Measured scan of single mutants.
Amino acid sequence: YYKILGVDKNASEDEIKKAYRKRALMHHPDRHSGASAEVQKEEEKKFKEVGEAFTILSDPKKKTRYD
């Protein structure tokens, strides 16, 4: 999950949140509406992965379990 968000394992809550926003905007489906179906599908997959990574890393209990 750290790799997906592009943050270090010791990243602060704020750094995780900023990285999530950056990656979410980058891969958001609306940004790729004019792209081919294949690209849209890949970006949607990445967008979901970013969301999942943020869900785990932003919750202290889940993050501890993950680490």
Rank of each mutant, 00 (worst) to 15 (best):
L57F: 01
V39Y: 07
F47T: 07
R21L: 14
E52D: 10
K17P: 02
P60N: 11
Y1D: 11
K9Q: 13
Y2N: 13
T64V: 13
M26I: 13
Y20F: 10
A37R: 13
K41I: 08
E42A: 09
D30E: 12
R65F: 12
D14M: 09
Y20G: 07
K18C: 11
S33D: 04
E38V: 08
T64F: 14
H27E: 03
E15Q: 09
K22N: 14
S12I: 00
K3E: 14
T55H: 14
D59M: 00
Y20C: 06
M26R: 10
F47Y: 14
D30G: 07
V39N: 04
V7N: 01
H28F: 02
E13W: 11
K41W: 05
R31M: 14
R31L: 09
M26C: 07
A19W: 01
I16P: 02
K18N: 14
A35H: 06
F47D: 04
E49N: 05
D8S: 12
Y66H: 03
V50F: 03
S33R: 15
I16K: 03
E49T: 05
I4S: 09
K18L: 09
K48Y: 02
F54L: 06
Y20I: 09
V7R: 00
G51A: 15
K22C: 12
E13Y: 13
A35G: 06
Y20W: 13
Y2G: 02
H32M: 04
K18F: 02
M26K: 15
K46D: 04
G6S: 03
E42Y: 11
N10W: 03
I16Q: 06
V7Q: 04
P60R: 08
S36N: 11
Y1A: 10
R31N: 12
A35K: 15
V39R: 13
E44R: 11
D67Q: 06
I16M: 07
K45F: 02
G6C: 00
G51W: 13
S12W: 00
L57R: 05
L5G: 03
Q40G: 08
K3H: 10
E13A: 15
A24H: 08
S12D: 03
K9I: 08
M26V: 09
D8L: 00
N10E: 10
D67T: 00
R21I: 15
K17W: 09
E52P: 02
Y20L: 06
D59Y: 00
H28D: 07
H27K: 07
K63F: 01
E43W: 00
R31W: 05
R21F: 11
E42K: 07
G51Y: 14
K3N: 14
R21A: 15
A11F: 08
V50D: 03
S33A: 15
E42D: 07
R21M: 12
K22F: 08
E15V: 08
H27L: 04
T55G: 12
E44C: 08
H27Y: 05
T55R: 15
K41V: 10
E38N: 05
G6H: 02
L25A: 11
E13T: 13
V50H: 02
S58E: 08
K45A: 10
D67W: 00
K3G: 12
V7E: 12
R65T: 15
K3T: 13
F54T: 09
T64S: 15
G6V: 00
E52Y: 01
H28E: 09
K9A: 11
G6N: 03
A24D: 08
Q40I: 07
E49D: 10
V7K: 02
I16W: 00
P29E: 07
E43S: 10
I56C: 15
S33W: 09
H27D: 05
D59I: 00
P60A: 11
E42P: 01
R21H: 15
E49I: 02
I4T: 09
D14T: 08
L57P: 05
K41F: 02
E49V: 03
A24C: 13
A53K: 03
L5T: 08
D59V: 00
K48S: 10
G34F: 02
K48M: 10
I16H: 06
K41D: 07
E44W: 11
S58T: 14
F54I: 06
D30T: 12
K45P: 01
L25I: 12
D59G: 02
V7D: 15
K3C: 01
A19Y: 00
D30V: 09
I4Q: 09
D8K: 05
E43A: 10
Y20K: 07
E13Q: 14
N10K: 07
L5H: 04
E15G: 01
E38R: 10
K41G: 04
I56A: 11
R31I: 06
E38A: 13
D14W: 02
D30I: 10
R65A: 15
K18D: 15
K22W: 04
F54N: 09
H28N: 06
A53E: 02
R21G: 12
A19I: 02
S12V: 01
E42T: 11
E43L: 01
G51I: 15
P29L: 01
L57S: 09
D67R: 00
H28I: 04
D14I: 09
A19T: 02
E44F: 09
R21P: 08
P60V: 07
V39L: 08
V7G: 06
H28P: 08
K62G: 08
K17V: 12
Y2Q: 06
A53F: 00
K9W: 03
G34E: 14
L5E: 11
S36G: 11
G34I: 06
T55K: 15
E13H: 09
S36D: 07
V7P: 04
N10S: 09
K9V: 12
Y66M: 05
N10Q: 04
E43R: 05
K63M: 06
E13L: 15
R23W: 07
H32K: 05
I56R: 08
K46T: 01
E13G: 10
P29T: 02
L5R: 01
H27R: 04
A11M: 05
T55D: 14
Y1K: 04
F47I: 04
S36P: 13
T64G: 14
A37C: 11
A37L: 13
K9N: 11
T64P: 03
A35C: 06
I4W: 03
L25Y: 13
V39G: 04
G51R: 15
K45Q: 15
A37W: 08
V50R: 03
L5Y: 04
D30H: 05
K41H: 03
I56F: 11
I16S: 02
R21S: 13
D14V: 09
E15A: 09
E15K: 01
F54Y: 15
D8Y: 00
K62I: 08
V7Y: 00
Y20P: 05
D14H: 12
A37S: 08
I56Q: 11
Q40W: 04
F54P: 14
R23K: 14
M26E: 11
F47N: 10
K17N: 10
L5C: 02
K22D: 10
K22T: 14
A53W: 00
K61C: 12
N10F: 08
R65E: 15
E42M: 13
F47G: 07
A37K: 11
S58P: 01
E49G: 03
K48Q: 12
Y66V: 15
A19C: 02
D67M: 02
V50S: 06
H28T: 04
G6R: 01
